[in-house]
Nucleic acid binder design. Structure first.
Lengths: 217, 217
DNA sequence: TCTCTATGTAATCATCGATTACATTTGGCG
DNA sequence: CGCCAAATGTAATCGATGATTACATAGAGA
């Protein structure tokens, strides 16, 4: 039976009661909450995000069909911030020196990953954007890949590289920075004798070692 | 004091009932179930492991204080297998050529990671062996790190390396293979234009590129 | 044989993702 | 303006899971 009854006529909301029935921009707030939870090292749960948005546990499902969709949206937002950082770094890099640009790219990549490890994990784990990912994210990724590819093509044309196998260089470079970022994320560096304070310097050193390795002597 | 009461006289178990009350080696079976679940791409849940062992949902907690402890034990077992593979590869590598050994190490590492991605994730994610990890696992890891270090020291003594910064080379090499393995795990290769069938060949190519980069020309 | 301890079961809890029925706003349309 | 439909929030509920507790049973050794 309808247990339902307008028991509370719902007095006109006094000025002290801040939150209206409708939230305003719940979707956005949920994404931010998810990113913040991740950054705090906590598990991202839909309910906790709802709690932080001061909203009922079911409300988020009005905006996201399931938890993964929320995580995917958070990944998209994190990727947006990541991409902005990369672009900024490239704007400051010398336009004419492809290897310098390659280096700047790697450095910006690692710096962001070091400083936003949880967000880096979200955008790279693949769980949240691999198959059903947003077209934006897919395009964004393809653009970044094409960027590094172009740098290597330019470098090869200028005769800067020892090897002509650009694909191999590209994948190796990617594996290098990705692996470095994950080592940090997964807490491997203590075991490898790299102290907290040395990590960013080591990142730079590793990138330089790689570039020296591929560059024509 | 035993609030205990023999309420049920409990009939003698008929011969048709196969499983005895005590399991025999539940701990072992649970670990195997966890590894198998991971290998199947499923989420590893304590209950599902218990189900596969045909045991009550609470039983696993007699052997592991919590889920993470089960995962840690599974990680330990996976690491044992991984280590065995590495050791086997090194036994077949030329004892006198440190760079060839370095290469063999990297290849064995990646081959195992490509063929056992889920197990590789368990042993590397750090979630299950970072802080309260078993001494065995910690020691094992330290040994592997020391192994690669020794190879590089030998190579340097034989004048095979371009750079004297062995630590940097070591970390870079580790980041390279770790990153490659994670790219595979995280499903990045399709985006990078590396087809399913080319991955192992690319792994070899990437390792060779790295070694060519650090070796004295 | 008797008892202690290890190990398994049953019942129960809190949390979480997810769904459903219902309530409240809001915005558009007459 | 007034009404209605769509959007958005709430409350109640479900099934699965990790975890705990009281109790049952088996096996080993005195």
């Amino acid at each position: 039976m309808p247990v339902h009854q307008p028991s509370k006529p719902r007095a006109r909301r006094p000025a002290t009661e801040a939150r209206p029935y409708h939230h305003g921009d719940l979707r956005r707030v949920l994404i931010d909450a998810a990113l913040q939870l991740a950054a705090e090292g906590a598990e991202v749960s839909v309910r906790e995000a709802a709690r932080r948005a001061a909203v009922s546990p079911g409300a988020p499902f009005r905006h996201f069909p399931n938890r993964d969709a929320l995580m995917a949206a958070a990944a998209e937002e994190a990727q947006r911030r990541f991409r902005a950082e990369i672009d900024a770094a490239l704007r400051e890099a010398p336009a004419a020196d492809p290897l310098a640009r390659f280096r700047a790219f790697g450095l910006a990549y690692l710096r962001w990953a070091m400083r936003n490890p949880a967000h880096f994990e979200i955008i790279s784990t693949g769980r949240y954007f691999a198959h059903g990912s947003s077209p934006d994210l897919t395009r964004d990724n393809a653009e970044l890949i094409a960027l590094t590819e172009q740098m290597l093509v330019d470098a090869a044309e200028q005769g800067l590289l020892r090897s002509a196998d650009l694909k191999r260089i590209q994948v190796a470079g990617r594996a290098l920075v990705y692996g470095f970022a994950r080592m940090n994320l997964d807490g491997h560096f203590p075991r490898w004798g790299v102290g907290e304070g040395e990590i960013e310097r080591m990142a730079e050193g590793v990138i330089d070692l790689f570039i020296a390795g591929i560059a024509k002597p």
